[in-house]
Computed example of a mutant assay.
Amino acid sequence: MKRIGLTLVAAFCLAITTFAAENQPTTTRWEGNINVNKLGKYLNLNSAQSEEVGYICDYFSTQMSKATTAKKDKEAKLRNAVYGNLKLMKQTLSAEQYAKYAALMNITLMNKGIELNK
């Protein structure tokens, strides 16, 4: 009985450790898989906006990948990539769409462990 109890405790601890390790924020590498179709549905984009947002998302993913792998000025490059993306999106989206996008971007960056207001 003691053996079964210790085995269950060990399995439980292993499961918790694995779960906690996967949910740690990291900026080591940007996995820029932005689903433009889901983003378009969420923001209610028209066809012209959808195409432009696709280009902006591709550009943003490229810039974030470069920024997260940079050896020098990593923080500045991250900041420039994010604010450049927001600027391009503000020109493309309506005020309501942009507000939803900015909130979504803020949550995404927080989940990735990227803080820009240091």
Results as ranks from 00 to 15, higher is better:
109 L>G: 02
6 L>S: 03
97 Q>A: 00
54 G>Y: 04
19 F>V: 03
90 K>W: 09
82 V>L: 01
108 T>K: 13
25 P>C: 04
1 M>V: 13
54 G>W: 04
61 S>Q: 08
52 E>P: 04
63 Q>N: 12
115 E>M: 09
25 P>N: 03
17 T>D: 08
78 L>E: 04
84 G>T: 03
38 K>A: 09
7 T>E: 06
87 K>Q: 12
10 A>W: 07
69 T>V: 11
54 G>Q: 02
10 A>V: 08
115 E>K: 10
97 Q>N: 00
34 I>M: 13
47 S>H: 08
98 Y>I: 00
33 N>G: 12
77 K>I: 01
62 T>R: 12
43 L>T: 01
87 K>A: 13
96 E>A: 05
61 S>A: 10
92 T>E: 03
22 E>H: 07
43 L>I: 01
65 S>T: 11
74 K>E: 04
48 A>D: 15
88 L>H: 09
100 K>W: 04
18 T>K: 07
5 G>R: 07
84 G>Y: 05
1 M>Q: 10
59 Y>F: 12
52 E>G: 02
108 T>P: 07
97 Q>K: 00
15 A>M: 10
65 S>F: 15
28 T>K: 15
4 I>W: 04
3 R>Q: 12
73 D>G: 07
16 I>Q: 05
107 I>G: 08
113 G>L: 03
68 T>N: 12
87 K>V: 11
112 K>S: 07
71 K>H: 11
53 V>N: 03
30 W>L: 02
77 K>D: 03
10 A>N: 06
107 I>T: 14
60 F>C: 00
46 N>L: 05
93 L>V: 01
34 I>F: 13
9 V>S: 02
1 M>A: 14
99 A>Q: 06
20 A>G: 08
90 K>A: 15
67 A>I: 01
56 I>V: 14
67 A>W: 01
82 V>T: 00
80 N>I: 08
19 F>P: 03
87 K>S: 13
39 L>D: 05
21 A>G: 06
64 M>T: 00
8 L>A: 11
3 R>N: 09
7 T>W: 05
50 S>T: 03
101 Y>K: 00
105 M>R: 13
114 I>A: 10
90 K>E: 15
100 K>E: 07
53 V>A: 07
32 G>P: 02
97 Q>Y: 01
49 Q>F: 02
50 S>H: 14
29 R>S: 13
104 L>T: 10
91 Q>C: 08
75 E>N: 08
80 N>V: 07
33 N>A: 12
67 A>D: 06
59 Y>Q: 14
23 N>Y: 08
61 S>G: 15
1 M>Y: 10
73 D>A: 10
7 T>D: 07
110 M>E: 15
85 N>I: 03
43 L>C: 01
39 L>Q: 09
23 N>S: 09
49 Q>P: 05
27 T>E: 14
72 K>N: 12
92 T>H: 02
16 I>T: 09
46 N>T: 04
29 R>I: 04
26 T>M: 03
48 A>E: 15
5 G>C: 07
117 N>A: 12
56 I>T: 06
113 G>P: 05
50 S>E: 12
98 Y>Q: 02
94 S>P: 02
115 E>D: 11
85 N>L: 12
33 N>M: 08
69 T>Q: 14
58 D>H: 10
